[in-house]
Design a binder for these strands. Structure first.
Lengths: 196, 196
DNA sequence: ACACCCATGTAACGGGTTACATGATTCA
DNA sequence: TGAATCATGTAACCCGTTACATGGGTGT
C-alpha cells in the first residue's frame, strides 16, 4: 500500500501533523505496512501538498519548530475514493494485506462493496489453494554443495509448506466467517428498519 | 529478504542461469517475496559477479543470446553462511517471513540452530501478543469528514483486529507444533544411533 | 546528568518497478 | 498467424532507508 494513500485515508478522520501520523504508523498502523520513517513522511507530505491533495495550517511556536497541521482537500478525497473504489485485484501473497488495506477504510464504502471485496479475495484464495496445494515441491534435480545436508532438504520444505497451507486455510476460514457475519448484520439492520 | 541472499541460497543447490532463477522465483519462490523482475535479477547478478560472490560460464549459442550459467564461489558461500548464522531478530510483522527465510535454508544448519531460531520467534510473538492483544484500539478522537460512516468505524476495526489476532494465534500454534516435532525427531535419530 | 520525546527537515544511497530493446523457437 | 516462451540486457524512475542537522522540553 502506498504511503500517500494511507495518509489520505488517515486524514479523512482528522487533521494531523506529520509527527502525529508517524506515531499512528508506529503503533496501530504498524500492522499494515513496514516501518515508515519520518524523513519519508515529510518528503511525501511535501509532494502531496504541492499536488493539492492536502493543505496545512502553520501553528507558529517560539522556539520549537512550527507545527504543520495537514488537512485533506476535496481533490485528495477524490484521489482516495478513486483508489478505494478502484477494481480490486487480490495480491498473490495474502500476507501483503491488499484486502486489509481496503477493509481498513470500509467505513467509506457501503456493505455491498465491502462484501464484493471479501468475496473476490475469497475466490482468489480458493483458486490458489486448488492450484498450489498439491503441486510438486521437490527442489529440481539437485547437485548440492558441501554445505547442504541433502537429507534434510525435503524435511524442512515439508514443514514450511504445511505451515503455509494451514495458514491460508485459516485465512480462508476467517474470510468466510466475516462474510457471514456482515451478511447477517445487514439483514438485522434491514429488519430493524422495516419494523420501525 | 535481500535478493542477493536468496540467489546465493539457491545456488547452493545447483548452478542456474538468471532466467532459471526467475522461473523459480515466479513459482516456489513466489511465496517468499514479492515478484522479482528480470531486469533486477540481471542487474543484481552483474554486481554479485563483480564482487566475486558468483562466477558464470558462458554457453555460446548461435542466434539466441548466450547462456550464462552462474555458480556460487567460496566467498559467496561464506557471505551466505554469515547471513544464515547471523543473530536472528524476528520482524515486527510475522508476515514479513523473516523466520521463513532462514527456515528455507535450514538444511545448512544443525538442529539446535534451527530450534533456537524457532524458539526466539515464538518468544517474540508471545510477547507481542501480550503487549498488543488488549490494547486500546479506538481511533483517537475523530472529526470525521463527510465520506466516513462514523458508526461503522469501530465495527470494521474490530473485524480486522480479530482476524489479525486469530492469525497470529494460529501462527504461534504452528511454531509450537514444529518445535515439538523437530525435538521428537531429534530424539528418534539419537536412539537410532545408540542402538546401532 | 542523561535519555527520551517533541517537531521539523535535507541529502545520499539502495533496491525494486516500468519502459525500452532484441529476436529466435514453440505451440495452438 | 499470433501468442507465449526462451534469454539476454540498459535506462529512468520511484520509493524506502540511513545519515546528517537542529534544539527545547520532560521525566528519572
Amino acid at each position: 500500500m502506498k504511503l500517500e494513500i494511507l495518509i489520505l485515508g488517515l486524514l479523512n478522520f482528522k487533521p494531523l501533523t506529520g509527527y502525529d501520523m508517524k506515531k499512528w504508523l508506529d503503533t496501530e498502523g504498524r500492522f499494515m505496512r513496514p516501518q515508515t520513517h519520518l524523513s519519508q513522511l515529510y518528503r511525501t507530505l511535501k509532494k502531496m501538498a504541492e499536488e493539492g491533495w492536502v493543505t496545512f495550517e502553520v501553528e507558529e511556536r517560539d522556539v520549537q519548530p512550527d507545527l504543520k497541521i495537514y488537512t485533506i482537500t476535496p481533490v485528495g478525497q477524490q484521489v482516495f475514493l478513486n483508489w478505494l473504489q478502484s477494481p480490486f485485484t487480490p495480491s498473490f501473497r495474502y500476507q501483503d494485506g491488499a484486502l486489509l488495506h481496503r477493509l481498513f477504510f470500509a467505513s467509506m464504502l457501503n456493505s455491498d462493496q465491502v462484501l464484493d471485496l471479501i468475496r473476490s479475495e475469497l475466490a482468489y484464495r480458493k483458486e490458489q489453494i486448488a492450484t498450489y496445494r498439491h503441486r510438486d515441491r521437490t527442489i529440481y534435480e539437485m547437485q548440492p554443495t558441501n554445505i547442504v545436508d541433502e537429507d534434510k532438504v525435503p524435511y524442512y520444505l515439508e514443514l514450511i509448506h504445511e505451515g503455509g497451507a494451514s495458514s491460508i486455510d485459516h485465512y480462508v476460514g476467517w474470510l468466510e466467517g466475516i462474510i457471514e457475519r456482515i451478511e447477517s448484520d445487514l439483514v438485522d439492520t434491514e429488519n430493524a428498519v422495516e419494523t420501525t
